[in-house]
Amino acid sequence: MPAPALTSPPEAVLFFGTCLIDLLYPQAGLAGIALIRRAGVRVIYPPGQSCCGQPAWNAGYRDEARRVAAQQIAALAGGLPVVVPSGSCAGMLRRHYPALFAGDPLERDAKALAARTFELTEFLVDVLHLRVDDLGPPLRVAVHTSCSARRELGAVDRIERLLDGLGGVEKVEQERKAECCGFGGTFAVKQPAISGAMVADKCDALAAAGAQVVVSQDCGCLMNIAGAFARRPDAPRCLHVAEFLWERSGGGAL
C-alpha cells in the first residue's frame, strides 16, 4: 500500500513512537524526531499514544486490538501527517486499521489516519528529500528491511537510498536478504525453536557479509537480531536507521 502523496515538507507532523521504542529503544525515537526537526519541520509527540495494537491483532484478539487502536486514532487526530519509525507499526496503521474498523463508527477516521501515515524512511526520502553529510569513518553496513516495510508498505528502497547517500559507508549485501529474520512479534515467543533457527541463519548471513553495522527501519527485527548476536563473538553493531543517520551526520547528544 503506497505512502501518502506528499512531496514537500509540511509545517508539522505527529510522531508515533511505537511501544517498543517507547519502552526499550527511546534513542531511536529521539533520533527520528531530531532528523525531522533539523530539516525544519515541527514535531509533535501526542501524549495520548501508546501502541498501534498489532500484538493483539496478530494474536487474533481483534476486539482488544480495536480498543487500543481507537485510542491511537484519538491521540493522532487533527489531520497532520503521522510519521512512524517502524515498518510494522506503520503497516498496521496504513494497511490494517481500515480493515480493523470496517463497519465501525470510527471507520472513516481510521481510513483518514491511514491515508496520512508515513513510515520514517518514506518521510525522510519522499517528503524531506533528506541529504545527509557523512562525517563518519569508513564502515561496512548491512541493511535489514523488515518484512512489513518490504511487503506491506513497499518501502524497501527508501532505506537503501538513505544509506547510498552516505559517502563513507560501504553497503554490504547479506545472502537471502529478503528472508524473514524470525521475529514475527509473538511468533518469537510462541514458536521459539523455529524463530531461533531463522534468526541464527540471519546472523550467519550478516556476519558472512562482513557487516560492521546492521541498520533497519524496525526495532523489532533489531531486537531479535541483536539479541541473537549478543551470544556471538562476531556481532556487528545493530541500530535503527534514524540513530545511524543522526550519528553519521554529526548530530550531537539526543
Partner: peptide, 20 residues
C-alpha cells in the same frame, strides 16, 4: 522461549514519552 536464542532486552532508563 525468547531467551533460549537471544539476550533478553531490558527497559530503557527513561521512556520516549518522558523524554518527549
Amino acid at each position: 522461549g525468547w531467551s533460549d536464542a537471544r539476550a533478553t532486552p531490558r527497559p530503557a532508563t527513561r521512556s520516549l514519552h518522558a523524554l518527549a
